[in-house]
Structure formats: C-alpha cells, structure tokens
Design a protein around this nucleic acid. Structure first.
Length: 419
DNA sequence: TCTGGGGTCCTAGGACCC
DNA sequence: TCTGGGGTCCTAGGACCC
C-alpha cells in the first residue's frame, strides 16, 4: 500500500520557545506575528482561555493579562533554525522528504497495512521528539489531502493517524468540507449554499457541476478526497519563484517621500536576499496599500513590470521601483503599507546573454553589492543605504522577542554555577 | 488608539494580432 | 451601410496556505 505521510509540528512557534523555557511547559503561551500585530501561535492552554488564531493582539489583551499568559514576539531566526534541525532528522529517517512549510513536511512510504504504518509513524514521532524536543503529529493516507486531515485528527490525542480505505470512507459523511486543506472561507460558504456540507456530499456531486462551480481546483479536490492522488509532492526545482518584502506603517501616511523611503528599504532587503540565494529577478512589482479595514481599499495600487534583463543590482532595481511608486501614488490617500516583490527568479548561473548586458555588465558591480551586503550583515541594515536616511515610520516592534539562542553568540543561553 | 508577512497557484479579461 | 471572431499573451486580483 502506497501512502503519503505528513509530519506537522504542534503549536510550532510556542514549542520552539519552550525548548529554552521548559518552565513554560503546561502553561499558557502565545506568540505574536511580526510587529506584534496578530496572534500566530498558541499553546493548548492559551486556546482554552479563548485566544483565537490570527486575532489582532489588542482584542485579546485583557484575556492575556487576566490569565497571566506568557507573551512572545516572533523570533524567526530561532524557528528557522529549529525547523532546519527537524528537517535534517526527517531526512535521516525517511530519505526523501518534501518540506511544505516551516513546520510541515510530506513523505511517501509503503506498508502492508494501516496497522503497520501506524507503528512506523509512532516510532518516527518518538524519534523526533527525543532528538529535537518539539512535539509533532503524524498523519497518513492515500493522498496528500487525506494525510493532512489525518495529521490534524489525532493532534490532541495519540498524534498518529492512518486513514485509508474503509477507515477513511466511513468518515466522509461526518467531515465538514470546511476542515479540508484547500477549502477556505469563501469556498466553504459557497459550498454550503449549494448544500455541500460534508466530504461525502462533494464526492457524490456531479462532475460537471464541480467543474463549472469550482474549476480545476474543485476537480482535484474531489479526486484527492476519493483517494486518487491529484497532487504529487515535488522537490522544488531550483530557487523560489519570488521574494517579497512588506511592512505596515505605524501611522498612515499621505506622503510620497515616506513611501519612497519605505520602498527603498524593501528593495534593499529583497535584493540582498536575492543575491544571498544566488538569483536574479526577471520582474519587479510595487504595492502601496491603504488599510484593509477602512473605506479606502480601492485606492490601493500594485503594478508589475518585466525587467529588460534578469538582475540583482540594488541600484537598478531601485530606479524601476521608485518610478513605479511615483506612478501608483495618489495624493490625499492614507497609505498604511508598502512592499515590493521580486519575481521570475532564476539562478544567476543561467542568465541568458543578451543585448541588455549593459545593465549588469561588470564584475565590479557584483563586487560592490557583495561588499555592501557584508557591511550590512555585520553592522546592521542601516550601515549602507541607497539614499535612504531612516526607516520612514514603518513598524518594527518586537519587544517580547526571546533571545536567538541558537544563532547569535551574544544571545546564547548562559549557565551560572552557584558557589 | 492598535488588524502580520511571505508564499503559490489559478483565472478573468484586456491588449494585440491576423 | 454593414463593424468579426478566434487565438495568444499578459497581468491584476483573488483564493488559499502557513
């Protein structure tokens, strides 16, 4: 029996914090997203106090205070490092894995029966928890979508679940479609309106109707839910497709200069990352947005351009980005957020030779960028900037961040010996 | 008062061509 | 006067995910 498996870390960010704060095991903990804006990870105890996922922090401030919930700002450097360690152990145990997100990975395996598969997954769970210390849930099924559901089903119990054949089919009349991977808020409302509430409803709906209403995505979903794989995990070939850098302003701004400062900062960071992965971008887009929660939504703007040649030089990218910013800008509009996306990324080793080589012609340019990247890495992002004096009012709050225990020598855990 | 940031994939509809 | 229609390419925007 060929199966897909999924490893999913429980309350991942909270679990990472607990690795270095074992005193917090069994106690309520919450991690906030960047800028301390929203809740992104909650311990089981915090969930019981009624802290929802994704809620703006100010809405749960009282719950946090009243119940003495421990609060952390995101410490992505720590989470990334713990994640890398987990993926390394998984590779050792399983061979090929397909990392899906910072805290999840799919894999494929073959077992005679569900019972045997379950034993194997239980072993794997114990290995990870012993070597890394982060609790995980494992699920398996004949498709990735079913494996994903299985991993969530037993999360708060044994943490291991195999759903295949009749074990899965028996459940389909009870599983709400809204709990299925790939069915979000909009689709699930639409499905309810068509009297599609449970997985079994979708499985018995006519194919023509599904195609008409939900397109290829709907057909794939139905195939996956009837145990016929429509998704294959793929090793990502080469580099990621895009790099994005975005921040909100602490206060809305109507000033073009402030937007330009922000866009400059984002291009600096995104281009730096692009060079770090050895890529060049073929397209560039700038987005300036008003608040998602006000009346100005329609005034937001985004525009993409195809670059004359794949490039990674901050100065050139910046020229295009600033001209896009000017074009998008409308005076009198309260902007809340600005960001850039570098797209169509290809490896710098595969840049085709073209008439446009004038854009990045010399090794000197690459060397200059290299020097700047090193200076900024050592002295902070404001060491060398491109005509940008300060951050321009964009948020950068992380007052509850834990130390970077595993990636910064200055923040390594200290052990004192009592005399 | 305060509502994240980083990704992928799909599709409708405009521009353009013949 | 009658003002086509099919194909391709592109991008803005939507939906979803973590």
């Amino acid at each position: 029996m060929n199966l897909f498996g999924l490893v999913d870390c429980n309350n991942f960010f909270v679990s990472c914090e607990r690795l270095f704060r074992p005193d917090l095991i069994g106690r309520p903990v919450v991690v906030l997203g960047s800028n301390d804006g929203v809740v992104v990870s909650r311990s089981e105890e915090a969930k019981k106090f009624g802290v929802p996922m994704g809620v703006p922090f100010f809405k749960v401030r009282d719950i946090v205070k009243d119940n003495k919930i421990t609060l952390f700002s995101s410490n992505f450097e720590l989470y990334r490092d713990v994640s890398d360690r987990i993926m390394f152990v998984l590779q050792e145990e399983l061979g090929e894995i397909y990392q899906y997100s910072v805290d999840e990975a799919f894999f494929q395996f073959t077992e005679k029966s569900s019972a045997v598969a379950k034993i194997q997954l239980t072993d794997l769970k114990q290995t990870i928890e012993k070597k890394i210390g982060v609790p995980v849930s494992l699920g398996a099924g004949k498709t990735m979508t079913i494996a994903k559901y299985a991993s969530e089903m037993e999360k708060r119990k044994s943490g291991v679940c195999v759903l295949s054949g009749t074990a899965w089919q028996k459940l389909t009349p009870q599983i709400p479609l809204s709990e299925i991977w790939g069915i979000g808020g909009k689709t699930s409302v639409n499905m309810r309106n068509h009297k599609l509430n449970f997985v079994a409803d979708l499985l018995s709906a006519p194919e023509s109707f599904i195609k008409e209403e939900y397109g290829v995505h709907g057909l794939r979903l139905r195939s996956e839910l009837s145990e016929n794989p429509a998704h294959q995990p793929t090793e990502r070939e080469g580099l990621q497709k895009s790099i994005m850098h975005t921040r909100s302003f602490s206060k809305t701004t109507e000033s073009l200069a402030a937007l330009e400062t922000a866009v400059t900062f984002h291009i600096e960071r995104a281009a730096e990352e692009l060079r770090a992965i050895g890529g060049k971008a073929g397209s560039l887009s700038v987005q300036i947005q008003t608040s998602r929660h006000g009346d100005w939504l329609l005034q937001s703007g985004r525009q993409e351009i195809i670059l004359p040649a794949p490039m990674s030089d901050t100065r050139t990218l910046l020229r295009y980005a600033l001209s896009l910013t000017k074009a998008l800008y409308r005076s009198g509009v309260p902007y809340k957020k600005a960001g850039v996306v570098l797209g169509r990324i290809i490896s710098e080793n595969f840049v085709p030779v073209s008439l446009w080589d004038q854009y990045e012609k010399t090794d000197e340019d690459a060397l200059l960028m290299n020097v700047i990247d090193n200076l900024n890495a050592e002295w902070g992002n404001d060491a060398v900037t491109f005509g940008r004096l300060k951050k321009g009012g964009q948020l950068d709050h992380d007052q509850h961040r834990s130390p970077r225990y595993t990636t910064s020598w200055n923040e390594v855990r200290k052990v004192e010996r009592k005399i």
